[in-house]
Nucleic acid binder design. Structure first.
Length: 379
DNA sequence: GAGTCGTGGGC
DNA sequence: TGCCCAAGACT
């Protein structure tokens, strides 16, 4: 740094263009210069060069990606995003699709209320907005499944509105930059005001994506790469030599354990008994094998006494699945039977399980009883 | 404001 | 291994 500053042949203008740590530049200028060089390339994103030329990402693509990315990693989202876009190229296609198809396509991505609201939102855009997404934060915020973050993100990224976009990445960057000691989530309004003050009217969409890229690649939860950060000369947490101390968060509660049983019935024709869960609540609207209630105590619910029909149910092991707020231990039972009418259930060929809206916990239970259920060997 | 709501990966 | 975390929304 000293060697460059001492180089008299470089004019101040050249210096400001060459250095991301120009002390005279604003936070936004430093960050955008960094983003121009180090942005991630993602399927739903327009490059900063194209964005500067006036090209905007498709609002449908931005919205779809943002909903999928809620509490979900980029890596997990990529194949789902491509699959949805190939199958439903326009928001009106998604609006017209059967909800069972949408739920089945979402299976495995988690937080299934997102898929239910995704469908509702597509229908609202198609029927109430002529198939065109609202182009303001307020208009977007009124749609199902679009909250504070997503409305601001779509407004900024798709419509270049100067919205204050704050997700978990931005919270981490801001809390470190200003060394905010107050714990989340109570400190959110203070952080949001900081973001609003930093957000530029020029390139607000790139600024929002740059903040998130910075949090994802440099200002990481553990071992942040502060030497590479465009805010390294401004960061109060770094000046205190402990950036990992931020963001401060409220203590978490212990995760309780619940117990239950799952029943895998298969006919000689290779059909399995399935049910559809009620629309609301845990795994709402998704497909399942019959199970007991999931209770806090290990009691009668973990024996075949509560099977969907009487018979010679065989124990097939226990599977453990960890949800957000409890751990589930399911005793799995299997039986060979003849197809019979079951109230509220249906018999599905095991070879067609991949097309079902089966959440991961149900795939685990089925696999415990039928080890090859989800392999090509049965197809 | 505090609970509810999935899943897979990293360390 | 157990814990934390990931582009949060809804009630």
């Amino acid at each position: 740094m000293a060697a460059i500053n001492d180089a008299t042949i470089l004019s101040p203008m050249t210096l400001s263009l060459a250095l991301t740590s120009d002390p005279g530049a604003t936070h936004a200028e430093k960050l955008l210069a960094w983003y121009d060089r180090h942005h991630r390339e993602l399927p739903w994103r327009t490059s900063p060069a194209a964005a500067k030329a006036g090209k905007r990402a498709d609002p449908y693509h931005v919205w779809l990606s943002e909903v999928m990315l809620q509490q979900t990693t980029v890596q997990a989202v990529k194949p789902y995003f491509e699959k949805f876009l190939a199958r439903w190229p326009k928001v009106t296609d998604l609006a017209a699709a059967p909800s069972e198809d949408v739920m089945a396509a979402w299976a495995g991505l988690g937080y299934y209320a997102r898929a239910r609201n995704l469908k509702k939102c597509a229908e609202a855009v198609a029927s109430e907005h002529g198939g065109i997404f609202p182009d303001t934060e307020e208009g977007l915020r009124a749609l199902p499944g679009i909250g504070d973050y997503t409305s601001a993100a779509v407004a900024a990224i798709a419509f270049n509105r100067p919205s204050a976009v704050m997700d978990g990445n931005v919270e981490r960057v801001i809390s470190r930059l200003f060394a905010i000691d107050a714990p989340l989530p109570g400190s959110k309004p203070v952080m949001k005001a900081k973001v609003a003050a930093l957000t530029p009217t020029d390139r607000p969409g790139d600024f929002a994506q740059a903040m998130m890229d910075l949090g994802a690649t440099i200002c990481t939860p553990k071992r942040p790469a502060c030497a590479l950060c465009p805010f390294r000369d401004d960061c109060l947490a770094l000046s205190e030599h402990d950036p990992e101390r931020f963001p401060v968060k409220a203590a978490k509660k212990a995760k309780p354990v619940r117990y239950g049983a799952a029943f895998v019935a298969v006919t000689d024709d290779g059909e399995i008994l399935l049910r559809r869960r009620i629309e609301s609540g845990l795994l709402g609207g998704m497909t399942e094998v019959p199970t007991t209630d999931w209770t806090a105590r290990m009691d009668g619910g973990t024996t075949p006494d509560h099977a969907p029909f009487a018979g010679d149910w065989q124990p097939s092991g226990t599977i453990v699945h960890v949800f957000t707020h409890f751990e589930l231990r399911l005793s799995v039972f299997r039986i060979r039977t003849v197809a019979q009418a079951i109230n509220g259930g249906w018999w599905e060929p095991v070879t067609n399980l991949e097309a079902q809206a089966l959440p991961t916990v149900m795939k685990k239970a089925i696999t415990a009883a039928i080890p090859l259920a989800f392999t090509k060997s049965l197809n």
